[in-house]
Simulated scan of single mutants.
Amino acid sequence: MTHRQQSPQRKFPHRRIHGGRSVLSVGPATWPLDPRLLLVGAGATILVIVLFLISISIGFTTPVDVARILLGGGTRGENVVVFDDALPRALVAALVGFGLGLAGSLTQIITRNPLATPDLLGITAGASVGAVLAITMGTTWGAWLAELGTPIAALLGGLVAAALMAALSYRRGSDIGMNTLRLILIGVGLTWTLQAVTAYLLARAQEWDASRAQRWIVGSISYATWQVVPAALIAVVVGIVWAMISARDLRALGLGLDTSRSLGLRVGPVVTGTLVVAVIVASLSVSAAGPIAFVGLLAPQIAMRLAATPQPTPVTAGLTGAALVLFADVLTRTALPGGLPVGVVTAALGGPFLIYLMIQAARKATA
């Protein structure tokens, strides 16, 4: 009698069909493959690469030549211009846009509200207070923050703001420990309060420090250097890792809290962990280029509509955010007056979109 030898379980990534849907499996982890989502993600990636090359080439050469230089075919002079000056700016634009878009998608998922973004929940405002303290009070009582550096100061500010927001929205007896509607309302109030604190710090600062901080607050990548790239890169890595690890849990949250609980999801740890990651990603992104307005609002909603998904997908939202900031940077350096911060462009785009979302939400509430 012969025995059929069982084949070893495959550990490497492979595609299979599960319940009529394509699924990518890596060991015990699985991710559903949505053709339209993959197409939108691929298109966004290509757009980011094209805008990235255009951003580097402005005022210097062509995107094709930039690609040649980046691949090691440049002269010494070309390498100095690209790698020392243009590349850090383009990298910061792409990484910060990705981080803000991803953080916005995470906060929108856990609250199931398109208006719940780091901008409106007080996270970026808290990060701004921390960074402005380090910039304007670095020679007085804020010297210890200046020694830590702007990225750490912004991260601490964002964490403190998130802790205040969570404490004020705490609801006893809830497995997520907070009321999401109260979280949004308190976040909006906290945002205005922290913006008042920032204005006070600017009023008390020395003229040079206040000017530098004001330029940073608007959201600008004009003076980006290699020194701020690591903070933005860490933000992107943290966000992508969390999005991959918790992909199934985040999809379940999109079905609603009651449905998630019925599926056996431990809602509290997932919501808390996702909020903490969103704070870290948004704060580090803000520390690199300032609070570039409305990227966290625009990117997830644009990506969701393009991919026709029921809720924002973090990586696609990040790619959309990177494309938005790069596009704003290209626009400010070509078609708009010189020296205009990218935050002005994103605010001009995001303001009308916010009004549209509020009108849409009001219509759904009265329907």
Rank of each mutant, 00 (worst) to 15 (best):
L156H: 07
I186N: 03
Q214A: 13
V188E: 04
M178T: 10
V197W: 03
G149L: 06
A153P: 01
Y200G: 15
M165Y: 12
S220Q: 02
A161I: 01
V218E: 07
L201R: 03
A210V: 01
I184E: 02
A167S: 14
L155K: 01
T198D: 03
L201K: 03
L168Y: 07
I217P: 00
T193Q: 14
L201D: 02
W144L: 13
S211G: 14
A196C: 11
A153V: 00
T193G: 13
G158R: 04
G149V: 06
T191K: 06
L148T: 06
A205W: 00
Q206D: 15
N179I: 09
S169D: 06
L148N: 06
T198K: 02
N179T: 11
G187V: 02
V197R: 04
Y170A: 11
I186F: 09
L202W: 06
L156E: 05
T150N: 11
V160K: 08
E207T: 14
L194T: 02
G149P: 04
N179M: 12
Q195M: 13
L185A: 08
T193K: 11
V218R: 06
R204W: 14
A163D: 05
L168M: 13
M165T: 09
G189T: 04
A205Q: 00
A196Q: 10
L190P: 02
T150G: 07
V197H: 01
W192K: 15
